[in-house]
Every structure is written in C-alpha cells, then in structure tokens.
Design a protein around this nucleic acid. Structure first.
Lengths: 339, 339
DNA sequence: TAGTATCTTGCACACGTGTTCATCCCCTAA
DNA sequence: TTAGGGGATGAACACGTGTGCAAGATACTA
C-alpha cells in the first residue's frame, strides 16, 4: 500500500538494511550513499512504520495519560505541561479519560497495554498496589500523579494538600476571622481529607477548636455542587464569616450562591479557593487561592517519566523526586471580617 | 519478553493460528478448545500486541486529535465528546497540541503518519488543501473541525459563526442598544471575520451603520487580551453601551476591565460572550452568550469519522454532514441601555 | 606481491500476529 | 466397505523494520 523501506532500497539500488542504516544516521554507511538515500526517501515520501519498528525494537515511544476528565481545568493544564515536555522528545501521547468509572479505567489500561506504551502517567484515584504492580510487570514505567494512596510507589508526584490548606486557613486567621468554615469534596477522597486535616491543624495551632457545623461537603468538585452545603451554612443561627473551599470550582459556585443570597464578598464573607485555575483571577471578586503549579506538575511528571524510561529497572528510591509546594495568592475574595 | 500467542499455543497444545482464531471468536474452532484457550490466555495474562496486529491488518484503531491547546475551555469539551464516542468503539486517541506553531504542527502530523492512525480530527487553522490531500492520500480519514478554509473537504464540521453573531447582536438591538461594539480576535482569522460579518449584517438589517471606532480586536483569545481594546473603547468620547465579544474568555476579561473602571454590568454596559464555556454561567454577572454544542460537536465529529473509517474511499458529498447551530442563552450580563 | 586490517554492504533471520491453503480425521450415505 | 464431504487444525507465508554476521572491496603494510 504505502511506500516501504524496500521501495526506497530498490530505487536506490541498495538493500533495505542499508536504507535502514542510512536513515538512522549510522556512520557505517558512506556519506554519499546516505545523502542519496535520504534524497530518494524524501522524493518517494517514505515515512517509516512505527508498528514495524516497535515490533522489532520493543519500544513504542508512546506514553499513556489517564485523567478523569479532559475538560477539568486543573488537569487540562497538567496535560499542557506533559505535552510540551514529551513532544520535543519525540514521544506521542495516548490520552484517555475515565469519567470516574472503574470499568472504563480498566478498559483503558488494557488498551494501553495492548499498545505497549513505554510509560504511563496516571492521575486516577482507583489505582491499587496490585494493579500498579501488574502494570509495572509488563515493562511500562509508571508515574502516579495526585493519587489517593500515595505510598504505592516512590514515583508519585502530588502537591502538598495539607500545607496548602494550612496556608489558606492561616491567611483567614490573620485577617481576624474566628468563624471559619470548610467545604470539602466527597468524591476527592484522600485529597479532600488531607485538606480538611490541614484546616483543622491550623485552627488547633491557633488554639481554636473547629466547629463541626462549619465542616460541610459537596458531592463532587464542580460549581453547582456548592449550592446545597452553602445553603446549609447560611441557615445556621451563627453563620461563618469565612470559607475555605476544596478547590476553585467549588469556590466559584459558592461565590454565586452567596451573591444570590445577598451576601457581599469579601465584605460579609471571605472565600478562598484552591488550585488557581486559569479563570480564578478573572472572577468578580478575583479569587484568593492556593496556586498549584499545574503546568510544572505535568512537566515534572513527564521529565521524571523520561528518566525512568531511559533507565528501566532502577526501582530504587535513590531518585530525586521533585516536590512542588505551591504558594498562596491573595486576591480580592478575602478581607477582614465584618463589624 | 512478554507472553506471546505462541506461549499460549504451546501451553494449550495447539498451534498459534488456532489460538488467534479462538481468541477472536472464530466459529471454526471447537467451543471446547475455545474456552480452554481463553482460560489459558487469562491464566498467562496474555495481551496481544497491537503493533504486530496492525502490521498485518493495516489498521491501528487509533485516531489522532489535533488542537492548539488542551487547556482551551472550548476544545477540552470537544475532546470530551470525542473521547466518549470513540472509547466504546475501541479506538484510542493520540492527542497533541500545536501551540499555534506551524513547525510543531508539521512534526505532529508526521508522527501521526508514522503511527499510521486510521483517522484524524484536526482543529487547526493551518491546514491547506495540499496538506489535506497529502494526509488523505496516505489512507487516513480526515475530519476538519472549525477550520478557517471550510471548503477543503465536505467533511468539515463548524458552527455557524455568522448566525451566532447575528443572534447576539439582535438581542442587544432588541434591548434598545444603539451604540454596540464588537471585540474580535486577531489570532482566530476567518472565525473572527465571520462573526464580525454577522455583527455587521444584523446592524445593516436594523438600518444602522456600524461605527468603525466600535470595532476593536484582541491579539489572542484569552482574558488578558481584552484589556487594551476595552481601554480604547472606554477612552472614546462617546463610548458604546454594549459589547459583542468574540468568545467567553474575552468577555470575561472585558468584565474585569469594566469593573475596575467603575462600570457596572449590565446597568452601564451590556456584554455578550460566545461558546458558553463551563464557567460562563458562574460569572458575576452570569454571562449572556451563544451556546455552542461543544460536546456534541466532538461527538458528531467522532461519529462521522467512524463512518468514514468503516467505508473508506467514498469521497462523495452524498454524506449527510450534521450542522450544529447552537442557541442564545440570555443571562445576567445584558440589560437595556442606561437612561 | 601477498597478507591483513578496515570499511561498506548484503543475506538471513527475528519481532508477533493474521490468513490462505492443505491436511487429517471422523461421520454419513451408497 | 468405501467414497465423499465437512469440520477442525496446522504449515507456511506475509506484514515492515532492525540487527548480527559474513562477504566483498579497498587500502595499507611488510
């Protein structure tokens, strides 16, 4: 069908191994022959078959990336970072989204295994240790990003949830707030639990005991999910004056609910987000949030994976796993409490 | 290295073609043998090699998707639609972003050609007719999405820019506005030009002549790019009272600039977006916009591509290309003009 | 001039799968 | 009993590329 290496060989009057070597820049081929073969290959529009090459070399130069949803504003930035790092290294990316569906995740990993990806970046919550080991046994390098069970492998990159939550809480304490609420995300599991833990720790450190009524949870991590828990907070006899949200999307949902209830942010309520998604600074008011280095996170994960794929088998924890802390960004959605 | 079809064959005491047939459910193999082979394959953890299969069948069941940036809130929803349509059909997706860089786009398409993708969904502006034909000549089915030069192939899905812009403009006219501005996006090329055309047409239809000073352009399509042109509008002796933006992101940028300038939306200025990205309804005020069926757009493109890949060679324009219109969503960012 | 070292190239095989065709076996009908 | 037929399986080859090894050509040295 398509033009193969043999076509080029025939046209050049050489054997196909010579063409193979010439195009790969093997120095054992005469410079003259090399340039002639390259010329002919270009004329014929020869493009080698990755499938055939992979079959022989046992490497695909493909990396699989798994997220729960591509349109998630957090992960889409992570993917940008992965893309920009892997592309210059001539790797292609299989991207798939699980939709938080275990069955679908299994199908995807199966497909990626059939395709013999060299590496895998998994941003899923559903990776068990056994699962991880099975994938690894098949020869693929694996990086976990943001995983619930962070102890499966040393090759896990995750932001410091507890640290971030403490930063946000401290900021509100420093502004003078005493009635501070926390809005978690049920679906985020460990991640949400960690941030709640940080929230409580910081209150403890300030000598305050967290009010259990101020700890509420959204069913998932998108703006509409904020409505119900925020209504509950508003209905309290003594509502809070500040709110630490699990992420920016929920904070944005909270802003809207508060606005509709006639509450002004930040005069009546202070609200903080988490992640610093692109849109956060363009909200009205601009969102005070914890800036996660999303792009860098993706880039670092990709870099780590590249190193791992180059030197497989070194499962030592002697590796220097970068840890990305992030930082607080104070914007317009927080202020001292009223009166 | 990995367990191959021959290992399964040996273990089952049959030849490898029998295993191949059994696992593909060929009826010529005894039911008994089939179940036994399947059992053994499962025990051994046999997973066929896509590379070897592709080499033989000349099909990869892989589709390449090209966008300018994954984190773009418009395309990331399109990708969701593509994903959810292709996954159940056992196709995998190569995702790559061009960053609006022609060289990088060429590298990506080259890589996808090496990988022998069965199909391609291109959301790029840089596809010339010759380029398109060359890709097609290599046997891949191609769908264009949102392309500047819509006439290259019948297999182009694009939303009706002109129609949408007319809708938005009419809405503002009906509210009583007479001083209406248009904020375009230089980088979007034809797309922006079409929307501007629709804007002008609707004004014409209302017997009004567009004021050239009210037509401004942003350098790119993200919120920060709105600052400069909006400042220019504010500096006019007689500034507009309404603004039709190229997309939601620019409208969001405009909202912030107006807010900082002490203008209230919608009391002083009405602002409209375009696309209805996820965040639009959670802005303050919620954005009046033109809802593009992004997810459906992706799903339709994928469906069309599936049909095209199943029956290659039929280049007829007898195909029924779906046309997706979209609809206006009136929310809080528009109101009658002041006084 | 012959022998040897070096450089260039081709032959043959392998990677893992699917497919065509031939073969073998068993069953049935004459 | 034998011929014929149909069903199950195996042998051989092909897909396009990379690689080890041998062979041929050339240059250099003794």
């Amino acid at each position: 069908m398509a033009v193969t290496i043999k076509d080029v060989a025939q046209r050049a009057g050489v054997s196909h191994p010579t063409v193979s070597r010439a195009l790969r820049g093997d120095s054992s081929v005469t410079l003259e022959t090399t340039t002639r073969i390259q010329q002919i290959a270009r004329e014929l529009g020869y493009i080698p078959s990755a499938a055939a090459r992979s079959l022989k070399t046992n490497r695909t130069r493909v990396v699989g990336v798994l997220v729960h949803r591509v349109s998630d504003p957090f992960y889409s930035r992570v993917i940008d970072g992965i893309q920009d790092t892997l592309h210059p290294n001539a790797y292609s990316i299989f991207l798939a989204s699980t939709n938080n569906d275990r069955t679908r995740q299994a199908e995807i990993i199966r497909a990626m295994t059939e395709r013999r990806v060299d590496g895998l970046i998994l941003c899923s919550m559903f990776i068990t240790p056994e699962y991880f080991r099975e994938i690894q046994a098949r020869g693929a390098s694996v990086i976990l990003l943001h995983n619930r069970a962070a102890k499966i492998t040393p090759f896990t990159l995750y932001h410091n949830d507890r640290y971030g939550a403490r930063q946000m809480t401290r900021h509100l304490l420093e502004l003078g707030h005493t009635r501070i609420a926390f809005l978690g995300n049920t679906r985020a599991g460990r991640e949400s639990a960690e941030r709640l833990k940080g929230f409580k720790q910081e209150l403890d450190a300030a000598g305050m005991t967290p009010n259990p009524r101020y700890i509420v949870h959204a069913a998932f991590g998108q703006p509409p999910a904020a409505a119900e828990p925020i209504q509950a907070l508003l209905a309290l006899a003594e509502p809070p004056t500040a709110l630490v949200c699990f992420n920016d999307s929920l904070a944005i949902g909270a802003l809207q609910v508060l606005h509709n209830a006639g509450k002004r942010v930040p005069q009546d309520w202070s609200v903080t987000g988490f992640d610093n998604i692109t849109i956060a600074e363009f909200m009205n008011p601009p969102l005070t949030t914890f800036d996660q280095p999303k792009y860098s996170l993706g880039a670092q994960a990709a870099n780590l994976l590249l190193r791992l794929m180059e030197s497989p088998g070194t499962d030592d924890s002697t590796w220097n796993i970068p840890s990305l802390r992030g930082e607080i960004l104070v914007r317009g959605s927080t202020a001292p409490p009223p009166h």
